[in-house]
Simulated assay, not measured.
Amino acid sequence: MDLLRIDDQFTDEERMIRDTAREFAASRVEPQVADWFERGIFPVRELAPELGKLGLLGMHLSGYGCAGAGAVAYGIACRELEAADSGLRSFVSVQGSLAMTAIHKYGSEEQKREWLPRMAAGEALGCFGLTEPDRGSDPGSMLTRARRDGSDWILHGTKMWITNGSVADVAVVWARTDEGVRGFLVPAGTPGFTASEIHRKLSLRASITSELVLDDVRLPADAMLPEAAGLRAPLGCLSEARYGIIWGAIGAGRSCYEAAVSYAKSREQFGRPIGAFQLTQEKLAWMEVELGRAGLVALHIGRLKEAGQVTPQQVSFGKLANVRAALDVARQARTVLGANGITLEYPVIRHMNNLESVLTYEGTQEIHTLVLGEAITGESAYR
């Protein structure tokens, strides 16, 4: 139902990656994800090695067992994975675009060799500890501190809403030091480091979300990421993750749209399929338009990224526009399905709830709006 035939612009390799990710999502995740969502579980230890074998973990990185795929290929994979569930794409994004990218871009050669091959294979899991309980959109005011003690570092603080946190083998933790913000690799089981899962969520239920507590955690000097100096380092990783969301949101929206079209063709009221009524057709037409626009935005930003020309402002444009579009599609699809739209027999309410979180994480809607506002006016409105 892609009237603009956007996929025709993909290369043969990109279409192969699309089909691989789509088959995995359809056969391995979609039949079970509603149950995972309802139970609030995500079998990450089972899925991670399977994703690793397909080359989908850290696939945009080169060397160390990573696939070295292009930006558009990675985006396409995110689209297909999020069509199953945002939690699946979130895992792949945090593993590859955040934790692995931080090590690949800012780590020492020893750190890269120790962690990246196992993470690419799904044998070791990572998380990314930046957000704090009261410092979500303002990471520059983080309270987590790292102080020197001889040749060691002592970390103290709390991180919140950390995907994969309680199952991660290594946490990339960002802390304030006397020399500015620095990144540290904290292996699971380090004394003083605890990660507890957050429960009672009504969104991203098929995803592991955690709180990290660092109570005077002692780390050796070589635990620090040597090339990560200042807040630009974690923000650079976030830009990679936000790029994946630009594509992923389309997958969630597409799943809702397809459910709505199928339902509109089969559900009858007043002696006709509801898809034969003008108001329903208007809803479906606008869903197609929104997803078509979002697909063009994603493809354009992806090609810019491959050419080394993409800017953080363009990534903010894509994240803001495409998540809003997907959420609008999900809400409209819910109305087409009526009461059936709120059950887990259909994917719509699950995607709709998930997208409420996607709208907030990796930079809230408001933050990306202000990024664009500053780009337009030259005036910063954050403070």
Rank of each mutant, 00 (worst) to 15 (best):
I41F: 04
I41Y: 01
P43F: 13
P43I: 10
V44Y: 07
E46L: 06
L47G: 10
L47Q: 10
A48K: 11
P49Q: 05
P49L: 12
E50M: 14
L51R: 03
L51W: 05
L57G: 06
M59G: 02
M59A: 15
H60W: 07
H60E: 15
S62D: 15
Y64I: 12
Y64K: 05
G65H: 07
C66N: 14
G68S: 06
A69P: 01
V72D: 01
Y74A: 02
G75K: 00
I76C: 01
C78G: 07
E80N: 04
L81N: 04
A83K: 10
D85T: 09
D85E: 14
G87C: 04
R89T: 02
R89L: 06
R89K: 04
R89H: 11
S90K: 07
F91I: 01
S93T: 14
S93Y: 00
G96Y: 05
G96C: 03
S97R: 09
L98G: 01
L98W: 04
L98F: 07
A99R: 06
A102I: 11
A102L: 13
A102N: 09
I103H: 01
H104D: 11
H104Y: 13
K105T: 15
G107C: 11
E109Q: 13
E110V: 07
Q111K: 06
Q111W: 04
R113Q: 15
R113G: 05
R113D: 11
E114Y: 03
L116K: 13
M119H: 02
A120L: 02
A120V: 13
A120P: 07
A121M: 09
G122T: 11
E123R: 14
E123S: 13
A124P: 03
G126H: 00
G126Q: 06
F128Y: 12
F128G: 00
G129L: 11
T131Q: 01
E132Q: 14
R135E: 10
G136H: 04
G136N: 13
P139C: 02
P139T: 08
P139N: 05
G140C: 03
S141T: 15
L143V: 09
L143H: 15
T144Y: 13
A146Y: 05
A146Q: 09
R147F: 08
R148W: 04
R148K: 09
G150F: 09
S151G: 07
S151R: 13
S151F: 06
D152F: 00
D152I: 03
D152Y: 00
W153N: 00
I154N: 03
I154D: 07
I154Y: 08
L155N: 09
G157E: 15
G157C: 09
K159N: 04
K159E: 05
I162L: 12
T163N: 01
N164D: 15
N164P: 06
S166W: 14
S166T: 10
S166G: 10
V167N: 09
V167P: 02
A168T: 10
D169N: 11
V172W: 07
V172R: 00
W174I: 08
A175S: 10
R176H: 10
T177N: 08
D178M: 10
D178E: 15
E179Q: 15
G180E: 08
V181I: 15
R182G: 13
R182M: 15
G183W: 09
G183R: 05
F184Y: 08
V186W: 06
P187F: 11
P187D: 05
